[in-house]
Each structure stands twice: as structure tokens, then as C-alpha cells.
């Protein structure tokens, strides 16, 4: 399992600026340099994974300190999925890049350039290709 980010966050180390990410074609990139096309092309190569569009429908960060519940509408069937994440957890928004509920905290803890995640943003998510 990957080590965690330095003190203040328990997010995985691969979200820290400078982390090296391997795309499906073998190319190496820094996490902060990833583009939408990198994810799309990697998913096209993958035999198991496909990318779904997940639209942010609601963000509730009022209940638990440093945590937020993000509700998504996933895929063409618009399935409703809610996830509880730390407010600094970065999602990748189509055509925009890394975004989180609290971009200041993401930048402070991970040094990852980040914008504010908002209702209506379309995030990249994964599903299995042959899910029955």
C-alpha cells in the first residue's frame, strides 16, 4: 500500500505534487501534469476499466470536520452515488484538472494545484467494462 501524505492528511502519497504516475501506454508523468486525455487514452487501452462521467450534484461539508459528502450522478444511467471524502481529496474534472472541496487545504497539504470543486462539475470516475 502506498504511504500517506505528510502530517495533516491521510491521503495517499500519489496525490502529492511530483509523484510519478504511469499511464497505460507506459508513459510517466507527474501527477500535476496529467491531462484529461491521459485518463481517456489510458482507459481506452485498458481491457478492464472504462471512464464514466460523474456530475457533482451536491456537496455537503457542514457536518463532519475536514470531511465532505459529495453526491454524484454517474454514467449514462445517472446513478446516484455518494462518497465521504476528506475535504482536500482531489477529483479530476473533465477539461479542467484537479479540484477539491477545499483547494487551499489541498495545495497546503499536497502542493497539488487545485481548483474549487463545484456542483455541476463533471469528474472522471472509473467502472469495470464488463460489469453485468
Amino acid at each position: 500500500a502506498p504511504s500517506s501524505a505528510p502530517s495533516g492528511s491521510s491521503l495517499p502519497a500519489y496525490f502529492i505534487k511530483g509523484s510519478i504516475i504511469q499511464l497505460a501506454d507506459g508513459e510517466l508523468k507527474h501527477v500535476e501534469d496529467l491531462k484529461t486525455e491521459d485518463f481517456i487514452q489510458s482507459a481506452e487501452i485498458s481491457s478492464e476499466l472504462k471512464i464514466d462521467s460523474s456530475t457533482v450534484e451536491r456537496i455537503d461539508d457542514s457536518h463532519t470536520h475536514n470531511f465532505a459528502i459529495v453526491q454524484f450522478s454517474v454514467g449514462e444511467h445517472r446513478a446516484q452515488v455518494s462518497v465521504e471524502v476528506q475535504v482536500e481529496y482531489p477529483f479530476f474534472v473533465f477539461g479542467q484538472g484537479w479540484s477539491s472541496c477545499c483547494p487551499d487545504r489541498t495545495t497546503q497539504l499536497l502542493e497539488l494545484p487545485c481548483t474549487k470543486l463545484s456542483v455541476g462539475d463533471v469528474c472522471i470516475s472509473l467502472t469495470l467494462k464488463n460489469l453485468r
Binding site: 502519497a13 496525490f15 509523484s19 504516475i21 504511469q22 454517474v74 452515488v81 479530476f92 470516475s125
Partner: peptide
């Protein structure tokens, strides 16, 4: 002396959340 350390390389799909809807039986 600084010992060379291997740099971890993470697969691209680590960065993307799985948001598969729960299958209802």
C-alpha cells in the same frame, strides 16, 4: 553519503475513484 532510493511509480487508475453504482438484488 546518500543512498540511491527507488522512486515509487503509481498506476494511473490509482488516482481515479471507482464510482460504480451499487447493484440491487
Amino acid at each position: 553519503n546518500v543512498e540511491p532510493r527507488s522512486v515509487p511509480v503509481f498506476p494511473w487508475h490509482s488516482l481515479v475513484p471507482f464510482l460504480a453504482p451499487t447493484q440491487s438484488d
